[in-house]
Amino acid sequence: MKLTESIKKDFNTMTWVLIPVAIAINVVIGQIVAILKLPVYLDSIGTVLVAAVAGPWAGALTGTLSNIIWGLAIDPNAFPWFPVALFIGFVAGWCAIGGLFKTWWKVVIAGFLIALTAAIVSTPIAVYLYGGITASGSSFITAYLLETGKGVVQAVFSTNFLVEPVDKIATALLAYAIIKGLSKRYLARFPRAENVS
């Protein structure tokens, strides 16, 4: 399939209306998780959901806009991390096309691939924008690794790789649980319903 066709396929009116809801799901679940003081973020469930039912391009757009809106409305510190969110949506979408959103154990694999992507993409941002130490709690791990003599890129990537998988596998599984809770009739209105049925 040609690139423009592949992009166009992701977007119908259902996708356009779903994206704001998905972003709101990201934000609100992210905040509830923070209230419950759970050791995860779970702030990309909506992104993964869109990626699964509408496709990688819609997923990438949802992730990007999620960060932009988070930056516009809640905390401008979120802006520079938008490429991470973009790739989470993009990779989740290709995982779904590859059939990884059909049974729960395959979803675990998808979660792991998404985590790996997030770890890779966030490393250069943390290194070049923040000099390796960002404003998140996991920076203490990075700092420790730096002290043991590891290079800054290696230290940041190792930290990300330790933190991401639990969060992203839980994210993917929750997105899958939501999809399983929706009716076939409803899911059929989305452009890539076949990825999840």
């Binding site: 209306v17 994206i19 704001p20 809801v21 972003i23 709101a24 934000v27 609100v28 806009l65 932009i68 809106i69 516009l72 409305a73």
Partner: peptide
């Protein structure tokens, strides 16, 4: 964008 700002 504007719908998201209202829905959140």
């Amino acid at each position: 964008i504007t719908a998201t700002l209202q829905i959140i």
